[in-house]
């Protein structure tokens, strides 16, 4: 499942514009599937500055662990507190209630470098062959 209206990174994060220069970030359905049952998500503090490709946290499943990379630069303006009690939201609703952070975008030009839904789909199809 790769929603058409989002932008993607090669490291399997998605980005969604939620207004006012603010971007919502999470991991893709493919990524949560690969990780398996997620039991813990470590998220940054609000106001932390992130550079593009910088790690903003970690997702842990029963058998694996994965760094989370920010697809864009900017300041963290919100984190999904619900994941503290219900990390399984990332498995169940990766594109909605399983979101991870919101960032106020520092360099809007970075968006054009991200993958479209079509390109991302191509990437994961190649990867799983």
């Amino acid at each position: 499942m790769v929603p058409k209206d989002l932008k993607y990174s090669k490291s399997h994060e998605w980005v969604k514009a939620v207004g006012n220069n603010t971007m919502m970030i999470g991991i893709t359905d493919y990524a949560q599937e690969e990780l398996g049952d997620i039991v813990f998500v470590e998220l940054p503090k609000v106001e932390q500055q992130l550079k593009q490709q910088e790690s903003f946290g970690v997702a842990e499943s029963v058998k694996a662990v994965s760094d989370l990379f920010s697809p864009v630069s900017g300041m963290v303006v919100a984190v999904n507190e619900a994941l503290g009690k219900q990390p399984e939201l990332v498995n169940k609703e990766p594109y909605t209630n399983g979101w991870m952070i919101k960032i106020s975008l520092a360099a809007p030009a970075e968006l054009s470098g991200l993958l479209s839904a079509e390109d991302y789909e191509k990437l994961i199809n190649e990867g799983s062959k």
Binding site: V39, S61, K63, V65
Partner: peptide, 9 residues
């Protein structure tokens, strides 16, 4: 909490 351990991390 095995994600802390050497066989995973």
């Amino acid at each position: 909490l095995q994600a802390r351990e050497q066989h995973i991390r």
